[in-house]
Design a protein around this nucleic acid. Sequence first.
DNA 1: ACCTGAACACCGTTCAAGT
DNA 2: ACCTGAACACCGTTCAAGT
Lengths: 194, 194
Amino acid sequence: MPRVTVAYREARRDEIARAALRCLVRKGVRDTSIADIVTESGLSTGAIYSHFSSKAELARYIVARYLVPHVETLEARARKGDVIAPRAVLATLLRAFEEHGLPPSVVVQFWAEAMVDPDLLAQVSVTAERLRASLQAALQPWADASGVAAPAVLAADTVRAVMALTQGWIAHTAVFGSRSVNSYIESATAALTE
Amino acid sequence: MPRVTVAYREARRDEIARAALRCLVRKGVRDTSIADIVTESGLSTGAIYSHFSSKAELARYIVARYLVPHVETLEARARKGDVIAPRAVLATLLRAFEEHGLPPSVVVQFWAEAMVDPDLLAQVSVTAERLRASLQAALQPWADASGVAAPAVLAADTVRAVMALTQGWIAHTAVFGSRSVNSYIESATAALTE
DNA sequence: ACCTGAACACCGTTCAAGT
DNA sequence: ACCTGAACACCGTTCAAGT
């Protein structure tokens, strides 16, 4: 029987996760220790471990708690118009990402963590699948209007491409420094259409 | 005064780096310990530290030693033809990458390391700059033939786009599983040209 | 039930001692 | 000069003891 309410527990988890996220943004995933999170949150080691079974589970919680709202914002934006072209979806996706607080460098570090933590990879995959399904729905009118034989296949392939292009922008921005969304889309288009 | 030749020293560094790379591919960057490299190489902790000042310097050496040859192979391929379109450069780049042994998941992990190790970021930047300059030279004939007012600017922008598209393929493959080079290029083109 | 903080196993790195 | 491996500071995690 819980002595505190579920809401209290969730608030406490959130408090820890927010403190952890501030550390991650400041110091990076590898260089953030439990001791850092203890200092940042003002709690003790044991308190953190009574809410999360491990550092890895805390990372998974952060992905679920702070990346999913990002995805929801992106979903909402992608559905604002009616017939939306893939370029517009990509631009919306990248601009929404730019405006949100999560730095590309942190996203790349979570990808790397997922390469080494199967549970985190599963978490990332679930989040990505939600985004994928939603973007595909947003692109369906465009695919239908394209007059192609199999518009569902076109929409599915196009969404994967949009997601890969988003990842390209994130990785490029993280490694080589900030890059304008417009010039990325324009030069990628020029490169592919020759 | 060195008791052994420079060549011997370099061979020893290589021996350690190769053992380390086998560990990285098998266990991931974060989960490879010095103890693992000691076991894999058959040397002692001290022997490794008498050749590399830290684990970070070993990582930098691996990037310089095993990524630069990749880059050289890509450079060579990119220059095989005469007037090469960006799509062909991208396809060559991705296919060369596919055929070489370095898994995309390891590349993503090195990006993440670079986010947290300024010296490694500098190393990655130097390697990338070499590749960039070489690909730009390979694309110059195409840019000149395009009849645009500033072909040098077009070539420079296009190369950045090709590199970002390559990073997109690497990140997408690492996170969502293996993806065919052709379908990636085709669906990205379809997405951008609407 | 939730929390504390000392204790534990393990990590990267150092260094006195060998050859 | 190169190498050994015990020693050190620090990491993530556990757990007996408090409230």
